[in-house]
Structures are given as structure tokens and as C-alpha cells.
């Protein structure tokens, strides 16, 4: 084997110095850009504050009521967590059914995704809350069932909200999961079949673990979108204990004729919440992108641009280059 000619250390050092200089210049340009973007944000906030103050905005009221309205964030998170778990279960089942050759499974899942994606979420929420008890009442009357059956069908607003959001998002996420499972590729299925695995072993051990890696980032996106849609649950009427930020802000604002103030506090609850969640999502995405990475070298070289990705995606949710390196799969659609 022919040895590559040794480069002199001097030459190497010079090359290294040049590389470092380039990296520093790039980093400086990036910091300068970030600083300017921050100035733009600050300017928008100042203009908005001045404008609102001129319109006799009641800042005192907002500060006064904020703690109460912010407490609603727990309701938002509770409903979101329960709904996303239901949605994930439905999406796994729905996706497997969409990919199956069984006409019953395929048909049922097709109907499910078509109906829940084809009708407005708010209509579905009202159906869970109002329509089901009505149907149950008629069924109880017609077949002489015990009235406990009817009572069970009257859902609390929160439970109806969880079911409504879970079924709706589950339908969208069925498509995400289906694409994720397909992205694993036929070779993996064949390899698993060739060593004699059954369908369920193949799914559990080989296909789904790989699919989940692809599915997690878009699922996190759905979760963030869902936190905002929990505001719709407020329309079902809530018990005081279960007020979400939107209902809190709206109700308190109406009582004191401070509409904009109440809504703005409510909006900032969701805004801060999605900001925090997006931050964690970006971290998670980068961690997943590194899973089974080819070598340490890749991880190191990926470090420089990723810092800017984190910063950008905090503001706008997947700004320039957000989530680079992840497999792109179609999202369920707009909500």
C-alpha cells in the first residue's frame, strides 16, 4: 500500500488557522444577524405597547388577573396530554389498518379518517358533548335499558373535549403514522419475514421502533397545535374549576369590560406554552437525528449550524433550517 505523503506540520497548522478564521467569521455574522432580529422583535413589542397604552389599555387589570388566567395552563396541558395519548393509540391502530389487506380494518379506518378529517373540529366537539346524550336517551327509552346507561353518556366538558380532540387528531395522525411506517421500507419487512417473524413480532420488534423515530417530530408538532385547539373546549361550558385560559380571560374580561386585556393575557398563555414546547421539540428532534449516527465526527460537525436552528425555531416554530436532517413526511393537513 502506498503511504500518503506526510504534510508538514506547518502547512497543517496554517490550514487549521484558516478554517478557524472562517468558522469565527461565520459565527460572528450569525450573531450579528440574530441581534438584529432581536431588535426587530423588541421594536414590534414597543410599538404595540405604546399603541395600546394610547388606547387607554388597562395594564393594571392585566397584571392583576394574570395569575388566575395563567392557572388555566394546567387545564390546557391536562387536556392536551390526555388527548395526544388517545390520538397516538388511534393513529397506530388507524395506520396499521390503512396498511392492511383486511377489508373490514381498511374500511373502518378509511371511514374514520374521512369523517374526522372532513368535518370541523368544533362540530365534532359539540357532537361528543350534546349529541351523544341525546342518542343515548332515545336508545334507553326504546330498548328499556337502565338509566345509568344514559347518565354515563353525559360527558363532562373536559372528557368530551379529550375525546373530541383525540379522535380528530388521531385521524390526522393516522396519515403521519402510515407514512412513517411506509418509510421503514420493504427490505426490513422482508428481513423480518425471512427469519420467520409473525406480523405482530415484525411490527413490534422491527417496523414500529423505526417508524416511531420518524413519527416523533411531526407528532410533537401535532401536540403543539393541539394545545391551542384546547381553547375550543371552552365552548362546551366548563365548571369553574376546569376553566381554560381562553374561558378565564373571556369571562373575567367580560365581567370588567376589559375584553382585549383578558384575551391578550389568554393569548400569551398559549404563546408562552407553545414557545416552551417548541424549544423542547427542537431539542428532541436533534437528539433523534443523532440516534444511530454514523460516527462522532458527524455529531461534532453538526454542532455549529444547529445552534442557530434552535434560536430561530424558538420564535417561529421551524424557522430557517429547523429540523434539518429529519426525514420529511407529509403532515396530516391544516387544522
Amino acid at each position: 500500500m502506498a503511504e500518503a505523503p506526510q504534510r508538514s506540520t506547518e502547512e497543517e497548522e496554517e490550514a487549521n488557522a484558516r478554517r478557524r478564521a472562517f468558522a469565527m467569521a461565520a459565527a460572528y455574522e450569525e450573531r450579528k444577524f440574530r441581534f438584529r432580529v432581536a431588535l426587530v422583535w423588541l421594536a414590534i413589542f414597543i410599538v404595540a405597547t405604546v399603541f395600546l397604552s394610547m388606547a387607554k389599555f388597562d395594564w393594571g387589570w392585566m397584571i392583576d388577573k394574570a395569575p388566575q388566567i395563567f392557572k388555566g395552563a394546567w387545564v390546557t396541558l391536562y387536556i392536551s396530554f390526555c388527548s395526544i395519548i388517545l390520538a397516538i393509540i388511534l393513529a397506530v391502530l388507524g395506520a396499521l389498518a390503512r396498511l392492511s389487506k383486511n377489508p373490514i380494518a381498511y374500511g373502518v379506518s378509511g371511514f374514520y379518517t374521512s369523517f374526522f378529517r372532513g368535518t370541523p373540529l368544533i362540530v365534532q366537539l359539540f357532537m361528543w358533548y350534546f349529541a351523544i346524550p341525546q342518542v343515548a336517551l332515545n336508545v334507553v327509552a326504546k330498548f328499556g335499558l337502565p338509566s345509568s346507561f344514559y347518565r354515563a353518556s353525559v360527558l363532562s366538558a373536559v372528557l368530551a373535549g379529550i375525546l373530541g380532540l383525540g379522535f380528530n387528531y388521531g385521524a390526522y395522525m393516522t396519515e403521519i403514522f402510515r407514512a412513517g411506517i411506509l418509510a421503514v421500507g420493504p427490505g426490513q419487512t422482508e428481513a423480518a419475514e425471512a427469519i420467520g417473524m409473525t406480523y405482530s413480532q415484525r411490527m413490534r420488534r422491527v417496523v414500529l421502533p423505526q417508524a416511531f423515530k420518524i413519527i416523533i417530530p411531526p407528532t410533537a408538532n401535532e401536540f403543539i397545535a393541539m394545545t391551542k385547539d384546547t381553547a375550543l373546549v371552552g365552548f362546551l361550558g366548563s365548571t369553574l374549576f376546569w376553566y381554560d385560559p381562553f374561558t378565564y380571560g373571556r369571562t373575567l374580561g367580560t365581567l370588567d369590560s376589559r375584553f382585549i386585556e383578558g384575551l391578550l393575557v389568554a393569548a400569551s398563555v398559549y404563546w408562552i406554552l407553545t414557545g416552551i414546547l417548541t424549544f423542547f421539540q427542537t431539542k428532541l428532534e436533534r437528539k433523534l437525528a443523532k440516534a444511530y449516527a454514523r460516527s462522532n465526527v458527524d455529531e461534532q460537525s453538526a454542532d455549529v449550524p444547529s445552534r442557530s436552528q434552535r434560536w430561530f425555531s424558538l420564535g417561529g416554530g421551524g424557522g430557517p433550517g429547523g429540523g434539518a436532517g429529519m426525514t420529511q413526511i407529509p403532515e396530516g393537513g391544516d387544522h
Binding site: Q188, A191, A192, Q210, K213, Y292
Partner: peptide
């Protein structure tokens, strides 16, 4: 031909 090892 393409090995098809389980990458996970």
C-alpha cells in the same frame, strides 16, 4: 443484496 440489517 442490501443486507437489510435492523438499524435499531
Amino acid at each position: 443484496q442490501d443486507f437489510n440489517l435492523f438499524p435499531n
